[in-house]
C-alpha cells in the first residue's frame, strides 16, 4: 500500500484528476486526516490543472458571433402592459441565474429534444403560463432541480435595458428569480440555471416586464401560471 511522500503526491494528483481507486481514496483520506497541511497540496494541484484552461490558443470568432450578441441588445419596440404585483413585503432574494438567447434554430430543436427527455424524469415540474389580460401570449416552464426551460409564444421584445424576469413563488411568500431575458423574432426558448433550493414545486410562476435588472418584481406581470 502507498505511504511514502512520493506516493502521497501521486495520490493527491490522482484525486485532483479524479482517477483514484476506492482503496486509494481511503488511504488518501487517512493521510489527509493525519496531515491537514496536505490540503494545500490538493489545492495546488487543482490550481495547476485549472491553469490548463489557458493552454489553448486564442482564436478570433467569426463576426456573426459578435453581431448576434449585440443585435439582441438593440432596442426593439415596446408594448406596455400595466399591472401591479400583488405580493408586498417579500424578502429580497439571492439570484444566480443564467439567461440567453441562442441565435440558431437548431438550438431550439436541440432544446425541444432535451425538454422531451426531461419530461420523462420524475423531479420535473411543467407549468403553463397565460396572460392575465387575455392576450394571446402563452408560455410553458419546465422546472428541474438545476435547470429551468422556458418556451414562450407571442411575447414582444422589450426595448433598451428593459428585460423580462421569470419568477417563482415558493413556500408561501418567498419569491425567487429564475432569470432575466428578452425576446427576439424567431427565438422562443430560453434556459436558466435554477437558483439553489428553487427547483420543482413552485406554487406560482410569473413573468414580469422590468425597466432594468431587479431582485423583486416591480413591473407589469405579462404571464402567470394557470
Amino acid at each position: 500500500m502507498m505511504t511514502g511522500p512520493e506516493d502521497i503526491e501521486q495520490l493527491i494528483a490522482g484525486y485532483a484528476l479524479g482517477n483514484l481507486t476506492p482503496e486509494e481514496e481511503l488511504v488518501l483520506q487517512q493521510r489527509l486526516s493525519e496531515s491537514p497541511e496536505l490540503l494545500n497540496e490538493v489545492a495546488q494541484l487543482q490550481a495547476a490543472l485549472g491553469l490548463l484552461t489557458l493552454e489553448p490558443t486564442a482564436v478570433t470568432p467569426p463576426p456573426r458571433v459578435r453581431e448576434a450578441i449585440f443585435a439582441a441588445l438593440e432596442p426593439p419596440r415596446r408594448q406596455t402592459l400595466p399591472w401591479g404585483w400583488g405580493i408586498a413585503g417579500v424578502a429580497a432574494l439571492v439570484v444566480a441565474v443564467v439567461g440567453f438567447d441562442n441565435y440558431q434554430v437548431r438550438q431550439q430543436l436541440a432544446l425541444n429534444e432535451s425538454v422531451t427527455l426531461l419530461l420523462q424524469k420524475p423531479d420535473t415540474q411543467l407549468v403553463n403560463l397565460q396572460s392575465p389580460t387575455g392576450a394571446q401570449t402563452t408560455g410553458k416552464v419546465l422546472v428541474q432541480e438545476k435547470a429551468v426551460f422556458l418556451t414562450i409564444q407571442n411575447l414582444p421584445p422589450l426595448p433598451g435595458n428593459q428585460t423580462y424576469h421569470l419568477w417563482a413563488i415558493t413556500g408561501g411568500t418567498k419569491i425567487s428569480l429564475y432569470g432575466r431575458f428578452n425576446t427576439r423574432p424567431g427565438v422562443n426558448t430560453t434556459q436558466f440555471a435554477a437558483p439553489e433550493g428553487v427547483g420543482p414545486g413552485a406554487l406560482v410562476i410569473a413573468i414580469t416586464a422590468e425597466a432594468g435588472p431587479v431582485t423583486t418584481p416591480q413591473g407589469p406581470k405579462v404571464l402567470i401560471s394557470s
Binding site: A68, I69, A72, V98, G99, F100
Partner: peptide, 12 residues
C-alpha cells in the same frame, strides 16, 4: 455567444 450574453444578462 452564451458566455458574453450571460455576462450581460446575469450580472453575477
Amino acid at each position: 455567444q452564451e458566455i458574453f450574453t450571460t455576462l450581460w444578462v446575469q450580472c453575477s
